[in-house]
């Protein structure tokens, strides 16, 4: 169970999270969406204890993220940029992470699955971006953790690897894992996510099933629905004094959510 209670975070004078509250739905795939620099990665990093919130609480399985470091045993994390020490080999990296976590790793199956065997003894600095991302995926999935945090998991992957990644995520979901994803590829989100949370102005703007959002916004796809949200920001409508039907729908949807 992941519970985020009223967290605030600002970098210098730039307020990124402003009293964000959310309980992540257990045993499902939640996509964290939002415009650029809306605080998606900040939220994910706050969950991992990498960003320290100015105010608020975060609890993962009843462990206080601000005080503990051991709760991270429960999380497999795929960082956004896959860069590793250049002079160690792929095999050494897996061994190192496994030793650091003091947990058995299931890297061999995943190495076979992503055809990484020929690269095991290559230094990480000599790998291409896509291969490095596959290594990144393996290190995130190789422990049997109840939580998986994936920051832009599709970056740099070829179509075959992308299909493999989707299958892998679905398989992990079936095992009852709670998975958090950020992505800018809406088709991927639409296909994978059971729940979408949309961050705007440092707070949760809406959350719900992708299909629910698509129908609420009278859109054909999640991409279109999100574009409509961005386009129809209420304050823009007010400034111009021209409130169209689209923003009315959005307002009513938002109101509904607030009433909940």
């Amino acid at each position: 169970m992941i519970r985020v209670k009223n967290i605030y975070k600002s970098f210098d004078r730039n307020e990124v999270l402003k009293g964000l509250n959310i309980d992540f739905k257990p045993q499902s795939v939640t996509a964290v969406l939002g415009p650029n620099s809306s605080g998606k990665t900040t939220l994910m990093k706050a969950l991992l204890g990498m960003v320290l919130p100015d105010k608020g609480e975060i609890w993962i399985d009843k462990l206080d993220v601000r005080k503990e470091s051991d709760y991270r045993k429960l999380i497999g994390y795929l960082p956004q940029i896959a860069r590793f020490p250049e002079n160690i080999t792929v095999r050494e990296l897996f061994e190192m992470i496994s030793k650091l976590r003091n947990a058995p790793a299931n890297s061999e199956t995943l190495v076979d699955y992503f055809d990484l065997k020929p690269f095991l003894n290559k230094r990480l600095g000599h790998l291409s971006g896509g291969t490095r991302q596959k290594v990144n995926i393996v290190q995130a999935f190789m422990f049997d953790t109840p939580y998986l945090f994936l920051d832009e998991p599709t970056a740099g992957l070829d179509p075959l690897s992308l299909i493999k990644l989707k299958d892998l995520i679905n398989a992990e979901k079936k095992k009852g894992k709670t998975i958090l994803i950020t992505s800018h590829i809406m088709s991927f989100v639409e296909e994978m996510a059971d729940e979408v949370i949309y961050i705007l102005d440092g707070q949760i703007n809406f959350n719900g099933h992708p299909r629910q959002i698509i129908s609420e916004y009278l859109a054909n796809s999640l991409e279109e629905a999100i574009a409509k949200v961005l386009h129809g920001l209420p304050d823009i409508g007010q400034k111009n004094g021209q409130q169209n039907t689209r923003s009315t729908i959005i307002r009513s949807f938002k109101k509904e959510n607030i009433d909940d």
């Binding site: 990498m50 991270r72 999380i75 994390y77 960082p79 590793f84 020490p85």
Partner: peptide, 17 residues
């Protein structure tokens, strides 16, 4: 500076800063 991204990965492990 070179290990900044790798540090992110280490910070996500159950180890103290």
């Amino acid at each position: 500076y070179n290990s900044r991204e790798f540090v992110e990965l280490l910070l996500a492990q159950p180890i103290k800063r």
